[in-house]
Nucleic acid binder design. Structure first.
Lengths: 203, 203
DNA sequence: TCGCGATGTTTATGCCGTTAACATGACAAG
DNA sequence: CTTGTCATGTTAACGGCATAAACATCGCGA
């Protein structure tokens, strides 16, 4: 396979319990690394398998297809995003300033994890919402939305509240996307200012 | 090629001046058709060529590569979007209500041309902004931004004005993207309400 | 000890974008 | 009218991709 003599794997740890150890985890880890370090990461099954020192089709023992692997990565990213927002909400304390801080955090997280955020929305756009599909993907996103709605302060009427939540989410998402697409340069002060325009004009 | 007898093209018009007539225009037209009628259009060179009744590599006489074809389609879409917004601005008259109407129009256009809007932003994200690249793509987008900024009413300080413009653009873009990704259902009344939250709170 | 199932490999199929070599046919120069 | 040239289109080929099927290997439990 690799050479005529010596052990099979080149430099890999010898304590591999199975053939590889834990290929699924290794693949996800490598995928997350690429999403974190590259702007347009190559997440092809062959490329991944190659750099994992494994044959081209080995990953099919752990994922039914490429989409499943991408979904798993997007799910992990969604979890991290929600976590960052929860931390920001706690750190800022409740109220209007806290809510604004959650929005700013969304944009900053997007800037720090551009490829991952893109993957998340690329994948979430392909799940069928009508079907009662409790796939982790849809559920995680429902959680994210719920989190936003819950942190929304104020004593508005339910309808106004829904509109305000949607407004806030749209604003930070659009701002993040425009920055990621290079349409506007990232300026933390500007981001904060733009987000606060809405939040602090409230009543 | 097609048969042993009769004319070469199956049912195509006989008045084709050249081999095909105008393959470039035909390819772009078919691409736009697919972008308009399909959610996830197949814009592969082979698929396009196949349905155009032409060999797989014929398009390379008119486009250096696939990206160039996609860029041409995105450029056309960008032009149509700008046109829609200009019309909306005129129809609504100036002032704050007119500006809000431009925003609503952006979202509605996105809903009516989802694949095309996606293509636009997918392509515009790949142009290098730093380089003095006066490619039609970058120029068209600068025009779009300028249009938004110009229609922005009010007598704010320049800095406030910039922030408000960015705010408005982010809001409608984010709203459009969330609808396209199926995160929120399209409701014209809700869209209008959400957009107006900002515009009309302006003192 | 043995075998079975999980994991990985090999091989193959059909798609894709892209290139190079060749064919065709419209139009201009002679 | 002839001829040549260039734009346009075709064929064949290369490498890469996702995926499937058949085969190989190894850990672990009966």
């Amino acid at each position: 396979m690799f050479g005529e003599e010596c052990s099979k794997p080149p430099i890999l740890p010898m304590n591999a319990p199975y053939h590889h150890g834990d290929l699924r985890a290794a693949a996800l880890e490598m995928g997350m690394e690429r999403l974190a370090s590259q702007v347009q990461p190559d997440l092809g099954l062959r490329a991944l398998a190659r750099d994992l020192g494994v044959s081209a089709t080995a990953l099919y023992r752990h994922f039914p297809n490429k989409d499943a692997l991408l979904d798993a990565l997007a799910l992990e990213g969604l979890d991290r995003l929600g976590q960052s927002q929860a931390e920001a909400a706690d750190a800022a304390g409740g109220g209007l300033p806290g809510f604004a801080e959650v929005g700013v955090t969304y944009v900053e997280w997007a800037v720090q994890h551009p490829a991952l955020l893109r993957l998340i929305y690329a994948r979430v756009g392909k799940v069928d919402l009508a079907t009662p599909d409790p796939s982790a993907m849809g559920e995680a996103f429902r959680q994210l939305r719920k989190g936003i709605a819950e942190k929304m302060p104020g004593d508005l009427a339910p309808e106004e509240r829904a509109a305000a939540t949607l407004h806030a989410w749209s604003l930070v998402h659009g701002l993040a996307m425009l920055i990621l697409d290079g349409q506007i340069e990232y300026d933390p002060a500007m981001v904060r200012k733009v987000v606060l325009i809405t939040e602090f004009r409230d009543s």
